[in-house]
Computed example of a mutant assay.
Amino acid sequence: MRAILIDKELLMLELLGEMLDEIEEVQVIGKFINPHQGLVEIIRTQPDAVFLDIEMSEISGLNLAEEIKKTFPDINIVFVTAFEQDAVRTFKLQAAYYLVKPYRAEELIETISCLLSRMGSKKTTLARQMVCCFKKLHFKYYGKNSEVIDVKWRTSKSKALFAFLIHHRDQFIPKDMLLEYFWPDVDIKDGYSNLYSTIYQIRKTLKSIGFNITIISSESSYRLELNDVLLDVEEWKKGREEFPFVTEDTLSKHKEICNLYNGDYLEEESYLWAESKKNEMRIQWLHYLKRVAKFYISSKNYSEAIILYMQIQEALPYKEESYFVLMQLYDAFGDRYSVEEQYSLLKNMLHKEYCAEPNEMVQTWYQTWKSSRAREQYKVEEFAHLK
């Protein structure tokens, strides 16, 4: 079970992490004090469980849980609290799990046992077969409870050739072209022998996992047909075309489309022939995220907009735009600490990469915001003094 921990208290965060590390079935993949950074990691990794502090300063743990459940209804939420009476409120979210600080080993083990039992009972009968090219080449059952399939490739060459055929799906690819790409330094007789052997390995691998993908051979070329198997790249493209406008009614679909893109096209495979497609799709993805984020901002749903702009910042860390937008979003969200953090990150990035300062507009906005915050703090202190 893959878990992410979010807690405002560093000591309790580390303690829970250490206790979970002692449980063989649990892998802690992230620990966060900042809830917004935790949300970004949840979007990126889609863990099985989130251990979430109820009493956080920037955002209520209950509100954060609602945001998580909207996008990932199958993620298990385990609330942690220093006050047992607070746990009763969690049932409003239909969450059956909570832990009271300080943690007791037997209660933690019992909770983990319940979570593992619940995960084991999930069914994937309604899921459809899907080939995935975002981030890396892999196979899974796509549906309410997605399940990645463990595929054993005979050789790295067979995996690369299959990816190439997927890249050129529904097209006849000349065998001579495949020899030039994959066996450029082999004489033609051995090259054809390697090609036929590799195609056989691919077919055997597909048969072993029960995927109805066919590779049609003619005298001089091959053609790959997906048949009824889905491809994440095509589903992402179709979703954007089918729902060109972001509205309250189409929002759930747009969240699903956003979640399909969990990494650049074949980025972990490092295939040179995929670079152009990868760059093209990344530009489309960034434009799309900004479009969805614009809707969230207009709806004053700042937490969701923050998540998307954190992804944009991760993809484009050397662009000033995301830092400034996040500063404004955190201000609207009421998170002063994160406004200052983003400005500091922006200054450090610009100094390190360009030996420059933030542009005049950003500096002016920040100084105005800083002065406004100082006046508000003075009013609060003066009021307290008068009392």
Results as ranks from 00 to 15, higher is better:
residue 179 L to Q: 08
residue 142 Y to M: 14
residue 230 L to S: 05
residue 252 S to Y: 05
residue 235 E to N: 11
residue 252 S to C: 01
residue 246 V to W: 08
residue 200 Y to V: 05
residue 259 N to P: 00
residue 215 I to C: 05
residue 218 S to A: 04
residue 219 E to S: 04
residue 233 V to I: 11
residue 206 L to Y: 08
residue 181 Y to H: 07
residue 235 E to Q: 15
residue 172 F to H: 11
residue 183 W to E: 06
residue 254 H to Y: 10
residue 165 L to A: 14
residue 191 G to Q: 05
residue 177 M to R: 08
residue 213 I to H: 04
residue 143 G to W: 11
residue 210 G to F: 10
residue 171 Q to K: 12
residue 165 L to F: 15
residue 212 N to L: 01
residue 223 R to K: 15
residue 232 D to I: 04
residue 170 D to T: 05
residue 192 Y to N: 11
residue 204 K to L: 02
residue 155 T to W: 10
residue 197 S to H: 14
residue 244 P to K: 07
residue 163 A to C: 09
residue 216 I to R: 11
residue 228 D to E: 15
residue 148 V to I: 14
residue 228 D to R: 14
residue 146 S to Y: 10
residue 148 V to M: 06
residue 227 N to P: 00
residue 179 L to V: 00
residue 249 D to V: 15
residue 137 L to S: 11
residue 152 K to I: 12
residue 232 D to W: 11
residue 174 P to M: 01
residue 134 F to N: 01
residue 179 L to N: 02
residue 134 F to E: 00
residue 263 G to Y: 04
residue 250 T to V: 12
residue 129 Q to V: 01
residue 238 K to T: 06
residue 194 N to K: 08
residue 163 A to L: 03
residue 193 S to D: 12
residue 146 S to F: 05
residue 140 K to N: 13
residue 167 H to N: 02
residue 164 F to Q: 00
residue 215 I to D: 08
residue 225 E to L: 15
residue 263 G to S: 04
residue 183 W to M: 03
residue 242 E to M: 15
residue 210 G to W: 07
residue 201 Q to T: 08
residue 183 W to T: 06
residue 203 R to M: 07
residue 211 F to H: 01
residue 195 L to D: 03
residue 225 E to Q: 14
residue 223 R to L: 13
residue 164 F to H: 13
residue 133 C to G: 03
residue 197 S to W: 14
residue 260 L to M: 14
residue 259 N to D: 13
residue 127 A to C: 12
residue 161 L to F: 08
residue 202 I to E: 02
residue 197 S to D: 10
residue 151 V to C: 09
residue 173 I to M: 02
residue 133 C to V: 11
residue 158 S to A: 13
residue 230 L to Q: 06
residue 128 R to Q: 15
residue 169 R to E: 06
residue 193 S to Y: 10
residue 199 I to V: 14
residue 162 F to I: 08
residue 217 S to L: 09
residue 192 Y to C: 00
residue 189 K to C: 02
residue 165 L to Y: 14
residue 130 M to T: 03
residue 126 L to H: 11
residue 194 N to Q: 09
residue 131 V to W: 10
residue 133 C to E: 11
residue 164 F to S: 03
residue 208 S to C: 02
residue 138 H to V: 01
residue 224 L to K: 09
residue 226 L to C: 07
residue 182 F to V: 02
residue 224 L to F: 03
residue 139 F to T: 06
residue 183 W to N: 04
residue 260 L to H: 11
residue 242 E to L: 15
residue 198 T to I: 00
residue 153 W to Q: 09
residue 133 C to Y: 00
residue 151 V to R: 05
residue 158 S to N: 13
residue 211 F to K: 03
residue 233 V to Y: 09
residue 178 L to T: 01
residue 239 G to L: 13
residue 189 K to I: 07
residue 262 N to T: 04
residue 183 W to L: 02
residue 153 W to V: 00
residue 196 Y to S: 10
residue 161 L to M: 15
residue 198 T to Y: 00
residue 199 I to H: 04
residue 162 F to Y: 09
residue 128 R to N: 14
